[in-house]
Design a protein around this nucleic acid. Structure first.
Lengths: 227, 227, 227, 227
DNA sequence: TATGAATGAGTATTCATTCAT
DNA sequence: GATGAATGAATACTCATTCAT
C-alpha cells in the first residue's frame, strides 16, 4: 500500500464526503459508520496502514466489497477516518476560542484559559492527530487540508490574543502580531510534543502536565508584556 | 516487518555496538560501514522501513548474508543506523553547551547563542531525527535510549541556564529550575516542530526560521527574568 | 467466470431464444436489445469475457438485475450475442448461394463469384466470428451449434458446386463430392485465417486480399477440373 | 492478469532466454525446467492464463518465489513456455524442408511429401500452437516473434517449391512465386484449421485427416501445373 | 417486474529470513 | 567467514451473483 502513495503524486481531495463515494442514508449510513469506526480503532491499535481490510471487515461487520463500495481504496478509507477527525477538531478549536473571547477580560486570564482549554482539546484528539501528522508526511491529500486547518487555527488564536493588544509590551503593531504568532506556535509545539504528537522519545519526564500548561501561559504572558 | 515489531514487545538493546554482532576490524569494518551508510541513505529516501535488504545489498555492495552476519534482523540494522545518529547528535549537543558555558557572560547572551546553536545542530540532524522519533513511537528499543538521550540533553542545557541564576526573576531555587526546564522544552519543541520532526502539516508558514529563533530566545529571556 | 465454464461440462442450449429467458415484447424487448448490443460492443472492445456486467449495465442503460432477469448467467449473455451473430451469418450465406445458383452458368464463373462473395460475408462478420471460435474452444454450448452451422454451410456450398459436375475432371461421383468438400474447406480455412479468425500471428504478409481471393478460385477451378 | 497485458503496449522481447532471468546451470536449471513443464501442462489443461502460480508451484515442486526469481511475471512465464515451443517447431520445419529438398525429385512427389510431413509437424505442436496464436492476438511480445517465425516458414517452403519451377504451368516468374505462396498459405491454413489451431467449431467432420492431406497436395499440384 | 447494494471467494506479487555451498 | 538462491506467508482489490425493497 505505502508504495502506491509514498513518494508518488496523488490527486484527490479530502474531507469526509470527498473520499467516501456517495451520500449515505439508513442502513448504508450505519454500515459506513461501522467501517470507519473499525478502521479508526485498528489505526490506533496498529498504526496508520498496518491493518488489513479483512480486519476492518470482521470488526466492523461489513463485507470487503462494501468497503470498496464506499471507498476507492484502502488509502481513501484511511483518509476518511482522518477527515472526520480533523472536522471534529476544528469544531472544538473554534468553540474554545469563541467561548474565551466572550469570557476573558484580560490578557493573563485569556492565556491561562486558552492554554488550559487548548491542551485538553489536543489531548482528546492526540492519538489520531499523531497518525494524521505521520501520514501528512508522505500523503499530499492529507497534508494539504492539514495545512489549511493549521492556518485557520493559528488565525483564530492570534486574533483572540490581539484583542488584548493594550496589554502588550511594545507598541509596534507588526511586532505585536509576531509576538502573538510566536506565542501560538510555542504553545502548540510544546503541547503537541508533550502529547507525543511528534514523538514519544522524551515524553516521560517527571515534569508534569499541569505544571507545563501553567508555565507555558506564564511564559507567553511575560513575553507578550515585554519590551 | 512492521508487524513483528509494532505494538509488540521486543527485547534487544541499542547503541551502535549493541545491535551489531561483533567488534569489527579491517575489511569487515569497511563492509559494516558500507551497509550502514546504504541503509541510512535508503531510510532517508524511502522511509524508516520502506526499503528492502536487497537494496541495501546492492547499494552497499555487501551480500545479504553479510548483513545477517552483523545484524540479527532488518530491525536491528535500522536501530544501528539510529544509534549512530544519536551518538553523533549527543556529541554535538555537549560540545555546544560546553563552548557557550565558557563564552557567554550574561543570560540574554547565552539564550540567544544557545537557541541559535541548538537550532543548527537539530537542523543538521533533522532528517534522521524524524525517523528516530517516528520509530520510537512503536519500538521500545529506540524509545528507551532516546529518552535517556533527551534527559541528558535537558540536564546539560538547564545546568547552563542555571549558571545565570542571579539574573532570574524570582528567588525560589525550585521555581528557577522549573523555569529552566520549561525554557528548554519550549525551545526544543518549537524548533523540532519547525524542522518537521513531528509533522509537516503546519510547517510552511511565511513565518520564518531566523525570526523564530530570535523570538524563542526573546520569549525565554522575558520568562526567566519575570516575577 | 472462466473457471466455471472452461474445461467443464455445461448443460445449457443455445440459439437466441434458448439462452434468453422469455419471449420479449415492448419495453422488455427494447431493454433486451440494449443489453445485447452493449455486451456485443464490449466483447469486441475487450474480448469474449473481459468485460463486467457493471459495464453492460451502464452502457446499455439496464440494471444488473434486468440482465439476470433475461439471462441465467453472464455466460449465457455472451452466448446470446453469439447466437444472434450466427443467425445473421447463416442468413447471408444462404442468400449468397441462392443468388449464385441462379446467376452463374459455368464452374469457373461460380467459383470466382462464390469466393468473392463468401470472402465479403466472412469479412463483415469476422470480429464476432473470431470470438465465437475462441469461445467454442472451451464452451460446448457454443461449439455444438457452431458445428451444425458449419455443416449446413458446407452442404449449401458443395451442392452448388456439384451443380456443375459436368465440368469436373474425373467421372467418379464419390470423388466429385470429395473435391467439392475439399474446395469448400480450403476456401473457408484460407479466408478465415487471412481474416484472423484463427490467429493474427502470420496475418501481415504483403500478399494481399484481392490476389488471395483470385488465386483461391483459380486453385479450386484447376483442382475440380483436374484428372 | 489479462488486464495488465491485453490492450496495452508492452515492450519486451521473446525467445526462451529473453523472458527468463539468467543463464541456468545444475540444480537451478532443473528447477527452471520443472516450472516450465508444469506451466506448460497447466496451460494445456486450463488455458493460456487460467492457471494459478500456486498450481505451478505445487505441480512443479518449486516455490512461488523461485518462479519470480526466473520470470519477471506470470505473463513472462507463459511467454517462456511459448518461446520454447516456437523454437522446437522452427527446428522441425527446417529439418523437414531440408530433407525433402534432397529426397524429392519431382513437384508432385515433393508436394505430397511436404503436406504429409508438415501436417505431422503441426499436429505434434498443435495444442501449444493454439495457445500461442490465441495469445498473439493481444500480446505483442508473442505476436512479433510469431510473425517472424511464420515468414521464415513461408520462405523455406516456397523456396523448395520453386526448385521445381520447370514443372509449373505458366512461365511468368512473378506468377510462379504467387502460386507458391498461395499454395503454402492454403496448406497451412487448411491444416491449421483442421488441427483446431484457429477454432474447433467445424472440426469434427467425417471428412478425414488422411484424405484431407491427399486432396490438399492434389489441389496444389493441379494449381501449380495449371495455365 | 425492476433495481442496485451487498457479498466474499480468489490471486499475483513482495521480501525478510534461512542455509547449502 | 561469505554468499545469494530458495522459501512461502501475507494482502489489496475485482466482480459474478443474490435478494431485500
Amino acid at each position: 500500500m505505502s508504495g502506491s502513495v509514498k513518494k508518488k503524486a496523488v490527486a484527490k481531495p479530502l474531507a469526509v464526503a470527498d473520499v467516501s463515494r456517495k451520500p449515505q442514508q439508513g442502513r448504508s449510513l450505519a454500515s459506513l459508520k461501522r467501517m470507519i469506526a473499525a478502521a479508526r480503532e485498528l489505526m490506533l491499535e496498529l498504526g496508520n496502514e498496518d491493518f488489513t481490510l479483512a480486519e476492518v471487515s470482521e470488526r466492523g461487520q461489513v463485507s470487503i466489497g462494501s468497503i470498496y463500495l464506499r471507498f476507492e481504496s484502502k488509502d481513501n478509507l484511511v483518509r476518511g477516518v482522518i477527515a472526520e477527525e480533523l472536522d471534529a477538531l476544528a469544531k472544538e478549536e473554534t468553540e474554545l476560542v469563541q467561548r474565551l473571547k466572550d469570557d476573558s477580560t484580560n490578557l493573563a486570564n485569556f492565556m491561562y484559559e486558552y492554554v488550559e482549554g487548548y491542551a485538553e482539546v489536543l489531548r482528546k484528539h492526540a492519538p489520531l492527530l499523531r497518525l494524521t501528522m505521520e501520514r501528512a508526511e508522505y500523503d499530499p491529500l492529507v497534508a494539504t487540508p492539514g495545512k489549511q486547518h493549521a492556518l485557520r487555527a493559528e488565525k483564530d488564536a492570534t486574533d483572540a490574543m490581539l484583542a488584548h493588544t493594550d496589554e502588550f509590551g511594545g507598541d509596534d503593531p507588526a511586532d505585536n502580531k509576531i509576538k502573538a504568532q510566536s506565542s501560538y506556535h510555542v504553545i502548540f509545539s510544546t503541547l503537541a510534543r508533550r502529547l507525543s504528537l511528534g514523538s514519544s522519545g522524551e515524553t516521560v519526564h517527571a515534569y508534569d502536565w499541569q505544571r507545563m500548561k501553567r508555565e507555558l501561559a506564564r511564559m507567553c504572558v511575560a513575553y507578550l508584556r515585554s519590551d
